[in-house]
Structures are given as structure tokens and as C-alpha cells.
Computed example of a mutant assay.
Amino acid sequence: MIPKNRLFHALPRAAVAGLISLALPWSTAQSQTVNAAAKYQQECAACHMAYPPGMLPQASWKRILGHLNKHFGTDASLDEASLRELSIWLPANADTFRKVHETPPQDRITQSRWFIRQHDEVPSATWKRVAIGSAANCLACHSGAAKGNFNEDDVRIPK
């Protein structure tokens, strides 16, 4: 037992020792997270915006990854290593947006309750504008969408 007058000095050393012991696994996990995020950006943003993983629940990401050969009408198949990496990273980072509570129909972000609520003032004709194309084209109105910024103050709806 540490005497009471030495307890104060022992705690910081114990905390530092604990942090040092966690450093290696953390840096390895951090590296894997960076690699997976880069892989997600590389693979998914080649065709559409790489939606923030937090916009969908885990179950949606698992289904999407399980059916990439029929990804919303397109074959978006990945090599085994990329699929394995993203199958860990996407569900681990899923449903982090505080609005995401349920699985949207067909795992479509644009059909989620929170998305519909956020865009209820947007007339349906707006989505059909050539400069927008569909509700799934977040970048058309949210210039910071690629970085996860969907601040309403930054919205600019194209004519």
C-alpha cells in the first residue's frame, strides 16, 4: 500500500505508464483508421460523394457492403482486402450522427426520417434541377459536404 503522502506522486506515474502501454495499439489502430478512410474515399468517391459513415446505421453499411455487385443498380464490387477493411471501418463509424436512429428504407440516406425532416422545405422540383440531379448529390448545395460539413448557413442551392 502506498502511504497517503506518496499517493499523489504515484498517480501521475501510473497514468503515464498506462498511456505509454496504450500507445502502440492506439497508433496501430489509428493507422488502420486512416488507411480505411483513405480506401473509402478512393473507392466510393470515385462514383459519388463518400457519405460520412455516421449517416447510416451499422446494419445499413453491412447490407450495402454485402451487395456491392448490385449497389443501387451498379456493380461496385471491391477486391477482398478492400472489402474486409471497409467491412470493419464503416460499421465501426456508423450511426455517429445524433440524428441517425433507424435504418432508412432501402438503406438510402435520402429516405431516412432525419434527412426528409432536414429537407422538408426543399420543393421536389429543386432536386430535378440539372445542377443538382437528385437528393443524393449533397455536394450540389453543401459545399463542405465532402468534409462532413452540412451547416445550414453554408447551403447554396443552385438555380
Rank of each mutant, 00 (worst) to 15 (best):
S77I: 08
N151L: 13
A131Q: 12
K147I: 11
Q58F: 04
K99C: 04
N5M: 04
P91L: 05
F8H: 05
S87G: 14
I2S: 05
E85K: 01
K99Q: 14
R13A: 15
D154I: 01
E80M: 03
E80H: 07
Y51D: 02
G18L: 13
T110C: 02
N137M: 05
C138R: 00
N93P: 00
H48N: 13
A23C: 12
S31M: 07
P52L: 12
L11E: 08
N69G: 11
A76P: 00
I109N: 01
H67V: 13
V100M: 03
H101I: 08
P53D: 01
F115D: 08
V100N: 04
I116H: 03
M55C: 04
M55T: 11
S82A: 08
I132R: 05
M49D: 09
T103L: 06
P158F: 07
I157K: 09
W89A: 01
F150M: 14
P57G: 13
D95P: 01
L83Q: 12
A135Q: 09
L83I: 08
V130F: 13
A37T: 06
T33I: 07
R129S: 02
T28F: 13
D95E: 14
F8N: 05
W114M: 09
W114C: 09
P123C: 07
D95C: 15
C47N: 13
Q106Y: 08
P91Y: 08
T103Y: 01
N35H: 03
H71R: 06
K62D: 12
A140T: 02
L78Y: 01
S87K: 06
S124E: 15
G73T: 08
P3Y: 05
A140R: 02
H142D: 10
H142Q: 00
I20Q: 07
A23R: 04
V100K: 05
E102H: 05
R98W: 09
Y51G: 02
R108D: 10
K128C: 08
F72M: 11
S134G: 12
K128G: 06
L139E: 15
I109P: 01
G144N: 11
A38Q: 14
A81F: 00
S60G: 09
Q41C: 07
F150W: 11
K39G: 00
Q58G: 04
R117K: 12
C141A: 14
G18E: 07
R113M: 07
T110K: 04
P104L: 02
A140V: 10
M49W: 05
P57M: 04
R98F: 13
S124N: 09
P105C: 10
E121G: 10
L78K: 01
N35T: 13
L139T: 15
E121I: 13
A146G: 04
G54L: 10
A29V: 12
L139C: 09
A46G: 03
T110Q: 14
T28D: 05
I132H: 03
S31D: 10
A94M: 03
